[in-house]
Simulated assay, not measured.
Amino acid sequence: MKVIPAIDLLDGKVVRLHKGDYDEATIYNDNPVEEARKFKEAGFDHIHIVDLNGAKEGKFVNLEHVKEIIDTLDISVQTGGGIRSYEDAQMLLDKGISNIICSSMAVKSPAEWLRVLDNYGQRAILGMDLKDGKVAYGGWLETLDQSLKDFLQPMIDRGLSTVLSTDISKDGTLEGPNIELYRKLSTQFPVLHFIASGGVANANDLKLLAEQNQYGVVIGRAYYEGKLSLDEMQRYHSE
Rank of each mutant, 00 (worst) to 15 (best):
E24C: 15
G43V: 04
S85Y: 01
Y120T: 06
E41S: 12
I100T: 05
L230E: 11
I75Q: 02
F60E: 04
V191C: 15
I70W: 00
D45L: 10
L144E: 12
D94C: 07
E180C: 07
P5L: 02
P190M: 02
A124M: 10
I195H: 00
N119R: 14
W140I: 10
V217W: 03
V218L: 08
E180L: 13
D8W: 00
I70E: 05
G54A: 05
M155H: 11
K67S: 12
G54W: 06
K149N: 14
K59R: 11
Y86A: 12
I168H: 01
G198N: 03
N178L: 03
Q153K: 09
L152H: 02
G96N: 02
G96D: 09
I70K: 01
N178M: 03
E68H: 05
P177C: 11
I219Y: 04
L17F: 02
I69C: 01
F44L: 07
L92M: 10
T162W: 13
N53F: 08
V77H: 01
L9C: 04
V3K: 00
A42H: 03
G96H: 01
F60S: 10
C102D: 10
S197D: 10
C102H: 11
G81I: 00
R37N: 09
D145M: 01
H18L: 15
A196D: 03
S186F: 04
I75R: 00
Q153C: 02
T187C: 15
K2H: 15
N29V: 13
R123Y: 07
A196Q: 06
L160N: 08
L185D: 09
D21R: 03
Y28S: 09
K131F: 10
G12C: 06
I7E: 06
A111C: 11
A210W: 15
R84V: 08
K184A: 12
G121K: 14
S103V: 01
K170W: 07
G58T: 06
E34Y: 13
A106Y: 05
V163H: 09
V116F: 12
Y224Q: 03
S98A: 14
G139K: 07
I7S: 00
I168G: 00
A124F: 02
F39K: 05
Y120W: 15
K56H: 14
G82W: 01
N29K: 08
A42V: 08
D51R: 08
G43E: 13
L130C: 02
L152Y: 06
V218S: 01
K207P: 14
D30W: 07
E112H: 07
A25D: 05
E239H: 14
K95W: 14
K40L: 06
G226R: 14
G176P: 09
V135R: 11
Q146V: 08
A6H: 08
H65W: 13
L141H: 14
L10C: 03
K184F: 08
M1Q: 07
S165Q: 11
Y120N: 09
L130H: 01
I97W: 00
R123P: 04
L126H: 03
K40W: 07
A203F: 15
D23Y: 10
I100D: 05
D71M: 13
F39M: 07
R158N: 13
S169T: 10
E239F: 14
V218W: 01
L228Q: 09
D150Y: 02
V15E: 12
V200Y: 12
L185R: 00
E225Y: 01
S238M: 13
F151N: 10
E57Y: 12
R235F: 15
N178E: 04
K95I: 11
E68D: 10
E239W: 13
L148F: 01
I179Y: 13
M128V: 05
